[in-house]
Design a protein around this nucleic acid. Sequence first.
DNA 1: GCCGGCCGCATTGTATACAGAGACGTATTA
DNA 2: TAATACGTCTCTGTATACAATGCGGCCGGC
Lengths: 242, 242
Amino acid sequence: MEREPLGRVRRRPRTQVNLAERAYEQLRTMAITYQFRPLERLAEADLVKRLKVSRTPIREALNRLVTEGFLVFTPNRGFQCRPLDAKEIFDLYEVRRSLEVAAARLAVERASDAELEELGAFLKTSRAAPEGASVVDLVGLDEAFHERIATLSRNGELLHILRNINARIRFCRWIDMENGRRQATQTEHAEMLEALMARDADRCAAAMNGHITRRLDQIVDVIREGYARIYMGADAARSRPG
Amino acid sequence: MEREPLGRVRRRPRTQVNLAERAYEQLRTMAITYQFRPLERLAEADLVKRLKVSRTPIREALNRLVTEGFLVFTPNRGFQCRPLDAKEIFDLYEVRRSLEVAAARLAVERASDAELEELGAFLKTSRAAPEGASVVDLVGLDEAFHERIATLSRNGELLHILRNINARIRFCRWIDMENGRRQATQTEHAEMLEALMARDADRCAAAMNGHITRRLDQIVDVIREGYARIYMGADAARSRPG
DNA sequence: GCCGGCCGCATTGTATACAGAGACGTATTA
DNA sequence: TAATACGTCTCTGTATACAATGCGGCCGGC
């Protein structure tokens, strides 16, 4: 009866994408940045009010975040923010190391020369990021470099797992980057690129291994700092007192 | 009014565990064994009838299986069985290899002598499994050996990821094991144990690497066989025509 | 006869109602 | 005063109703 001519925009703006998907992305961001306090209980009714959708999509999103390791779940008690656990972060770094070392070796075999050129170009532009760039941006560039190598490994499953791990340890990487890691990161990335271009798998794997192991060695300090941030204020994850 | 003395069993058997959890386990088993045809659409209404629970717990289970890689999901079209994809299985084997090699190295460092003794005992009893043992049982023993090493790496995240991968490639391992892999498996496991006990990380890593790489080399054939099984009948995954 | 659009049905997406479990406070008793 | 038991209340678990989407069949036009 009130049909419209084709090509017209739909009357109601329409969600256009799942409410569950949107809820997932919002909650995921909050979890990554520790906007929930560790072990804080996430009452579904509260989230209904905050996200303005019903419990169904919210539960769907929460469940997904549990299987991805961002939240924990107890039957009949609901969902909680995961604790910031030193052992867990340590384990994740260790897994990340083994995956990225493998990715480096595979990339040496499988990446084309053109792709390595492009990786070099990316490294160059990222070096050009301003001195005062935010840690969020710097970690973004760092992650991007590593994920590019993983992409060049031509192993989709490896990349997928690595992305999940990266999201889970991102908070710690922000803190680590604040401690003036930028210079060392750049140098070590350059070494990896060189090894890739030289098609030297052993050298590339060793560079990657050392690169990540050095971060791993400082986890305990980073975690301690992380606790301070989380309990200092909601936005502590993002900004550094200037 | 009808209260009971302590220590008595509850009157109603009670579900005792989430319907969602049970639905998850049932559907997961079906997915692992390819009781759904690749790309078969899983209509929620059908599953309601089959599992005798409402759509809510079923959707929860299905969503979980998507994030774990057992199903695929398309918005407004629902859930499908994942395709049996050679590249995906290949990638999973590659990831598995890198994780298990890392686990082997870590286990060399971290496992106690007593734990290695126990691993040896396990290997001995598994060797005693009868000649006519089912492939399901044999693969179970194989997986158990590998997961024990992962446990000895003391890295919970690594173990968790490995378990997921094992479930996703289990179907292929059944087929591989049918092709008379038992003897080689036993020998190679023994070699790994020896290297562990000698506390020789390089040798242990090399043994693990070779062990898994040999399986990887045959993936294509295994997948071809897998397709035949899936399309031959529901129970094809389990039994081998004598 | 073939192509395109329209309509109806089947299926998914979301909200909500209701039931059950657990937590907390209070009152009662030893 | 302390411990316990009970009742209430909040929150989660599940079912179901309703909305919206997409697919397939049917009809009409070319």
